[in-house]
Structure formats: C-alpha cells, structure tokens
Design a binder for these strands. Structure first.
Lengths: 132, 132
DNA sequence: TCTTGCCTTGACGTCGGCGTCAAGGCTTAC
DNA sequence: GTAAGCCTTGACGCCGACGTCAAGGCAAGA
C-alpha cells in the first residue's frame, strides 16, 4: 500500500509518516515511480508507535519497540530494552501524578481561602436550614 | 531597585522580567538614565506570577491575578476573575490526573504482560521457598 | 488532452517561555 | 583612562511533533 492508505489506516497523516521516516523509524521501500510502499508489518509497527505516543511517550522512547519488531519479535515489548522504557515511564508517571496531586491540593486550598476572604460571603456549598 | 536586583530577589532572570513586560505583565518606571525602576509592590506582583507559574499556570492565566493586585486588592486572588482561573485549573488538573492515572495503569498492565511472556522467567518479585 | 488526485522533496511556520548573543551606553572603582 | 559590571534594545535559537505551502511528477478516468 502507499503512504496515503497507510496513514488513513493508522489514523494519522502522510506528513507524520514522512517525519517518522526522517527520524529513522518506519522505513519504506520504493516503487518504480518513486512512491513509498508499505506492507502489513509496517502498519503494525506504525500502530505500535501511535499507541505509545498516545500514552505520552516521546518518539525516541518508541525506538526500542520499533527495533524489537524489526528484529522479528512478535510484539514491540518482547525485548528487554522496551521493558526498561516501560519501567522508566512508570516512574516518571508516578512522579508527575504525585506533583500534580500536590499542586491540585495547593490550588484547592488557595481557592478555599480566597473564597472565604471574599466579600459577599464564601459561596456556601450547602445551606444548613433555611431555604430562601 | 533596578532589574537585576528584582530578578535576584524573585529568583529569576532579567530576561524573564523583560519578557513579562513585553507581555504586558509587570510594567516599569524609568530612571533618568533609561534604566527600569521597581518597588516592593512590583516584587509582590512578580512573586505572584512566579508562584502561579510554579503551579503550572500559563502566563496568560496569571493576568487576572496581576490586574487584581494592580487594582489595589490585597491579594492577587481577591478578585472573581482569579477565582474563575483557579476553578478552571482545578478542573484541568483533575482531568489530567485522571488521564495520567489511566495511562499509568495501562502501561503497568503492558509491563506485567510483557514480563510474563518474556523468556527466562517473569522476574519474580518474591521467592517462595528455595533460595539458590 | 485535460482534469483530478495521488505522490515527491524542500523549506518555513507553530507554540511558550525564555536563553543567548550582539552592539552599545552609563557608572563606579582603581 | 580604562576595566568591570551594571543597564539598554534587537534579534535569532531552542525544543517536539508535526502543519502547511510551494512546485512539480505520475496515474487514471472522461
């Protein structure tokens, strides 16, 4: 198949595929007219990249998975190098979630304080008795 | 005080202060020699910006806080517009944390699956009996 | 043959928050 | 006077993952 069809089947754009190629991921054969030609394996490889990208992996972080598939392994994460990336990512995610949770708490505290200090009353969430 | 001192006292750089000025935050008076001159109020304003930046707020999102302080309010979040930003940010943080938590779980699942499928054994976390 | 729609390479644009360099002016210490 | 250390404006660089435009080639249908 050609680049347009591959892009469509992977839910991305031709520009993206050429970019991946420029980065050394996703190589392509060429037809007699110079057009790029791909097969089902390329689709599988591309879907591996896209899945990881959706997870927030950098393009470089997908490289071990790509090389693993190219080496003939059944899955992109069938190789130790891929597992290393998984574990590192888990650590990064934990750290990030922790930081964001902390920030969330601080912002919430600021909001509560600011609302309490606001003129016109602190916008009560529940009205204890009274309904007017 | 001049720009270098203000930057130092706020733990940032002169380049950053000029950038804030170019964005319309943090205005400055000028001395006879053309140098920017700041006072303690400017420092307070700058610290407000920096705090929000550390929380992950975009520069644009700090504008209501800045305008609130400029209007003479005691705190940057003494104005309704600032509270709106707080609430929106809380929502964004909740969404983001939720997404990251979901991704974390998916990555963890992939790692577990890949480890189980790996040749050479699934790297057991604990050894039940046997120690050699 | 002409249009339409794919494809090619090349190259500049985007976004945010600055970093960094250039070229020069003011002030103070020595 | 001159070197050091502050300041000024202007402008290009950076990062990542592409978007978008330009100029042109190839293929297929009417």
């Amino acid at each position: 198949m050609r680049i347009g069809e591959l892009a469509a089947r992977a839910g991305t754009t031709t520009r993206t595929l050429r970019y991946y190629e420029s980065r050394g991921l996703l190589t392509a054969r060429r037809g007699g007219n110079g057009y790029r030609t791909y097969d089902e394996d390329d689709l599988k490889l591309l879907r591996q990249i896209r899945t990881l990208q959706d997870f927030g992996f950098d393009l470089e972080e997908t490289r071990p998975f790509v090389e693993c598939l190219r080496a003939g392994h059944p899955e992109g994460d069938s190789c130790p190098a891929s597992l290393v990336v998984y574990r590192r990512k888990l650590g990064e995610l934990d750290t990030l979630i922790e930081q964001l949770t902390s920030v969330r708490a601080q912002v919430a505290a600021q909001l509560t304080r600011a609302e309490a200090a606001a003129p016109g009353g602190p916008e009560p969430k529940c009205e204890l008795g009274g309904h007017g």
